[in-house]
Design a protein around this nucleic acid. Structure first.
Lengths: 233, 233
DNA sequence: CAGTGGTCTAGACCACCAG
DNA sequence: TGGTGGTCTAGACCACTGC
């Protein structure tokens, strides 16, 4: 079938993807085992393994010991979304980044924040609101709660110079987190700050991060009208 | 340092992540080379390589030949987002899936669709609108354009039984695509169909897919009020 | 139980690129 | 141009799981 030998994992990867795509191997169908493919293509089993493993992670193949490898029936495509620091996101568009702190004060967390982060109602927390600008125009309004216990030195940080977002990235790495996208109607204050009409549809990102099941921060990011988040599939 | 030997790539992965996280290895700092780590941890270089490669893909490490491996300065976290077929998305929540075709007719594509998909204005296209239901309630309104040239047999499909979404997944796999999220105000027709107030903020997903730089379909998916897309970081 | 994928190893060669 | 990561190989043992 193949006149030339495929001796690197990328070409094996591409060849297998081609066979899936051309329906030579149909959804649900079992494909040759690693040893067979290796001998057919003229390479080591480890090479085939590497290629098939990547395809399995990408959702094209289902692999199970003893049962073999099959083409996924309902491929669940995975979108990959890069999440840079806001400043870099804006600068990456070739725009000038601006930032202005609105408020920063210690306060007891509201009930819903406690639930999200898993902290006690009497926890010592920092409540920060700020506005991020692109080319001088409002870009995003940030409303954030930080558990001081998880990042004590933030109490000494000058958040009028560095955004809480960026400070946390530098000083309080998280082990895992959640992100949620939705659409909301602008509140009066949000509308005013972002230069939007009251009740205008705004894009909202909520982000919660933990350090080993220890809540660090919850951020509510409201974007100016027209904001789009793009992703490659 | 480590009393026990780490002989599998996952433990090496975790150990390296631990050192990054505890600031034993600081952002920007160069970490030991593969051979050194391998001998320190008591495993083969390939094992270390596997672990470091995964960490680099995840955005924690920057690796370059000759320059060595460094802890990423501004880690760009990657959100992973699963994109199942709508039916499975709804059933996955334990809800009953419903579907109703609203319209399906051949038509010349509007100008903006031509641009997005890269097809000619006189291309033969199928315009499909439909409503997806969860537990009998409106869940998402789908407005889709399909290039018939890219999937000829869709002309024969009975789209009142199987959604265009699902038909395409089964019969016209794509090689790559784009997805964009945003917030819009409900149009009158959208509001009526989704049971929302006029001008209510709605969540919009636009999805465009290609097969080797050959446009297949553009879909505009408007979700019922309150829709959230969640993702793990 | 036996077959398949998952992984580890030791060694080798190569590609890239910083110095 | 030499050092570092990227990859391939042949062989081995193991873990899971369908039969």
């Amino acid at each position: 079938m193949s006149t030339t030998e495929l001796t690197n994992w990328q070409s094996v990867h591409d060849e297998v993807l081609r066979r899936i795509h051309t329906r030579e191997w149909k959804p649900g169908q079992q494909i040759p085992k690693e040893v067979e493919l290796a001998s057919e293509l003229g390479c080591a089993r480890a090479t085939v393994n590497r290629a098939l493993r990547e395809l399995a992670t990408a959702g094209f193949l289902d692999r199970r010991r003893k049962a073999g490898t099959r083409v996924t029936l309902h491929p669940v495509r995975k979108a990959k979304l890069d999440i840079p620091v806001i400043r870099l996101e804006i600068e990456g568009r070739g725009q000038r980044y601006g930032y202005s702190l609105i408020s920063a004060e210690r306060a007891a967390p509201p009930h819903d924040i406690c639930g999200r982060l898993g902290v006690l109602p009497d926890a010592d927390m920092l409540h920060v609101t700020s506005l991020h600008l692109a080319d001088g125009k409002p870009y995003m309004f940030e409303n954030r709660w930080v558990a001081i216990a998880a990042a004590p030195s933030i109490a000494d940080a000058d958040l009028s110079i560095i955004s809480a977002n960026e400070w946390l990235v530098l000083h309080a790495p998280y082990t895992h987190g959640e992100m949620a996208f939705s659409a909301i109607a602008a509140s009066n204050s949000e509308a005013e700050m972002l230069g939007a009409a009251p009740h205008a549809p705004l894009f909202l990102i909520e982000r919660t991060t933990w350090e080993n099941d220890h809540g660090i921060t919850y951020a509510r990011l409201v974007f100016a009208p027209g904001h789009r988040v793009q992703s490659v599939i």
